[in-house]
Write a protein that binds this DNA or RNA. Structure first.
Lengths: 312, 312
DNA sequence: TATCCTTACGGAATTCGTAAGCATG
DNA sequence: CATGCTTACGAATTCCGTAAGGATA
């Protein structure tokens, strides 16, 4: 048994049982992959793949039983290398962060700047995507840390930690009639066309919940995935915007006025996620603490241990 | 990275950092081991062992961090082979059971007989030892299933399951004065020299607890590790015996009389233990169910999942 | 017929054991 | 000076890629 065999099996599953493709991905020859797989099957004594004729078409029952073990073996091997690196070059390496647009654009910059100053030799990769994509990147091991407000808590293979709470604001062009209200109410908002986040992004569900609870049916005319787009349409007069308060910058958004709406919508909680079974390097913990000072290294490790369910 | 390197490291730790011994255990040459280790250290980029001059003397800090990962990697590799075997030969293989004398002698025989009838092609290994030795055998992966009344529950790396409850009995020679009491009391027992289990065996702690709670200081003249020895000394008239009720057989123990003492001593619970991260073969589950019918395969798997703590 | 897996074969790289060298308690 | 690790080297093995073969949609 060796790791190349295990990699071949894992990749074969990922590539939909096309060994030619596996060979490309693993930078080797197709007959090589074929042999790796057959050697492993011979060693464990059970076929892993279903073959119809000469093609692989799926996993056998033993194959299904083995796959999680194989994944963990390869994961642990990588973790081993990572632990070594960690001690060899505490200050060097790569940190891969997956975040939603909102986070990458508004919440992360300060943390990134401070982190870069503290660890100039760490190369920082910033992936951007929907909350589900963030989760996928984490699960695939392509990101070390994920940050999003939605969805993350529903993946059992992820450990999530609360980072910070925030609320929405309403943005309107200067002189908009909404500005005349002393205290903004949901009913006022419902009278105007609304531009806000797409379903599944940046607390959109909380916005819908609030209106639904008040028995209102707001007219969302444009739904976007990020605040910059929303603000652009608001500036064009297409409606009033509802965005995360953090996304409003008095300096930059000269043409707009923000109205605090924390009394109208439920509080949102931005979460940070890590994959179970991953090993975070020292500077990874440092980044987390920079981003959310309450999440000390100890706090993160504790959360990991407390939530160590379903491993078998 | 390959498994031989990992095995070399693990064995080096187990052999107290003597690479010559490692080479013997792994059936290879000593320079080979040397290189395996150095290659791995080169690959991960950190030294794993502390060297004073040319000798290995201990683990470095990175080494200590890596060791648990290495153990799990090798464990998973073995599990992989095991899963393969499982499907290849459902009815064949080896089942290794570690139990205390009491269990092996009195509780297991029925289960073993039935199991042998059901799986004639499975070779059954029965290790015997103190509860702590049972735990060690499990932890070292040398036993698949451990059975004992004491100690097992205190190892966080073991999952334990309750099997059955039992109580102690008093044994005396025929015509012994104790037999005159209508209802036996602890104070009666305390008037006689006592022969019972050694500390740490077969509910001895419960015996001590009961006397202590009653303010009595019984005179234990002989402490043994198993009921056969105890009964022998009782037959010789050296004292009254306190043994597990199950250990008294009216047929075999003609010279003795058993007196039920369930009202005097706390109930005992015999537990079955498995190591976390081990994979039990189908017939292993079958054995458990034969031994303790309430422990169906599902019940065992559930207990495993429920107790999946501290893994990282 | 194009795609995709298997078999066959030869060269290259790795691995491994023996023998010699050297440090340490 | 005996034990124990390293280095050196040559042989054996394993590994891997190319090329050809055969099955399937």
């Amino acid at each position: 048994m060796n790791f190349q065999q295990l990699r071949s099996v894992r990749e074969a599953v990922r590539c939909g049982f096309n060994l030619t493709e596996v060979a490309t991905v693993l930078h080797t020859s197709q007959p090589g992959i074929s042999r790796q797989i057959r050697d492993l099957e011979a060693e464990v004594g059970s076929p892993i793949f279903v073959r119809s004729g000469k093609r692989l078409t799926g996993l056998t029952e033993p194959g299904r039983a083995m796959l999680p073990l194989i994944e963990r073996l390869l994961q642990d091997a990588q973790n081993l290398r990572r632990v070594g690196e960690e001690f060899a070059h505490e200050q060097r390496g790569t940190l891969s962060i997956a975040a939603t647009h909102s986070q990458a654009r508004y919440a992360l910059p300060h943390a990134v700047r401070d982190f870069r100053a503290q660890f100039p030799e760490v190369s920082l990769h910033l992936h951007q995507g929907s909350p589900r994509q963030v989760a996928s990147l984490l699960l695939a091991g392509e990101a070390d840390i994920g940050i999003a407000t939605e969805a993350l808590a529903s993946y059992p293979q992820l450990v999530t930690l609360p980072c910070y709470r925030w609320t929405h604001s309403v943005v309107v062009p200067h002189g908009h009639p909404l500005l005349r209200h002393e205290r903004l109410e949901l009913s006022h908002l419902a009278e105007h066309p609304i531009v806000t986040y797409d379903q599944g992004y940046t607390g959109r569900s909380h916005i819908d919940d609030a209106f639904a609870a008040a028995g209102l049916r707001p007219q969302v005319v444009i739904a976007a995935m990020d605040a910059d787009v929303i603000k652009t349409y608001v500036e064009l007069g297409l409606g009033i915007g509802i965005v995360a308060s953090i996304a409003i910058d008095a300096e930059r958004d000269r043409g707009l006025v923000g109205i605090d709406a924390r009394h109208l919508f439920p509080l949102n909680l931005t979460r940070l996620a890590l994959r179970r079974g991953s090993v975070l390097r020292g500077f990874g913990f440092a980044f987390i603490e920079t981003f959310a000072p309450s999440l000390s290294r100890d706090a993160v490790v504790r959360a990991f241990l407390d939530s160590a369910h379903e491993d078998a």
